[in-house]
Amino acid sequence: MEVSQNMSLLHLVLQASIPVKFVMGILLAASFMSWWYIFIKLFALKRAAKDTNRFEAEFWGGADLNAVYHRVSDQPEKAGELERVFEAGFSEFLKLRRQSGASVNVIMDGTRRAMRAAYQREVDTLESHLAFLATVGSVSPYVGLFGTVWGIMLAFQSLASVAQATLAQVAPGIAEALIATAMGLFAAIPAVVAYNRYTHDLDRLSSRMESFMEEFSNILQRQVAK
């Protein structure tokens, strides 16, 4: 009877065998890291969306391109993703324009390449850690299950040496083992939800950036052709 008296969570966790404790530790760390990245990405994506909105409004609002370019290149750390793409493309365009004899195609190809490179870099930065969330989401249930199976194995093993098997002898072991599964699910569910949500957000953001790049090249081409 004394077993059922002390079934508090802390007691169960402290009583667990070393492999189960190890699994619980891994899962706790994974859960903590995934929540950390979830919040980091939340802030980063929100800020990126805000910056993009602001820059698009400024750009299409008829601002002077040279002024925007100077502002962005003076303090690149304050600029958003789309602004950096714009800056990379515009600086390449100016450099190529300065060289005499470059054809329209050469200028436009160079500009587009520069913008694409900047775009890739930005998307890569935004995408960082998302793979970790995916990994946690898919793997941590299995890790938790492993801990549970191990714990139940031990619980039944200890039952083998007892003449009369009662439920009270296995119950604490199983309860303790099931905590591992619970922790695995606890780590996995938010990670999966966040991963799906962030990939979707990122897709929308990158498609916005791509369409901006196309439109901006059109504007530049018109200027060269003049």
Partner: peptide
């Protein structure tokens, strides 16, 4: 600097959730 501050806030929030 901004990123670091965000990181710290995110860590605190994660700890809070747990």
């Amino acid at each position: 600097f901004a990123l670091q501050r965000n990181d710290l806030a995110a860590a605190v929030l994660a700890a809070g959730v747990h």
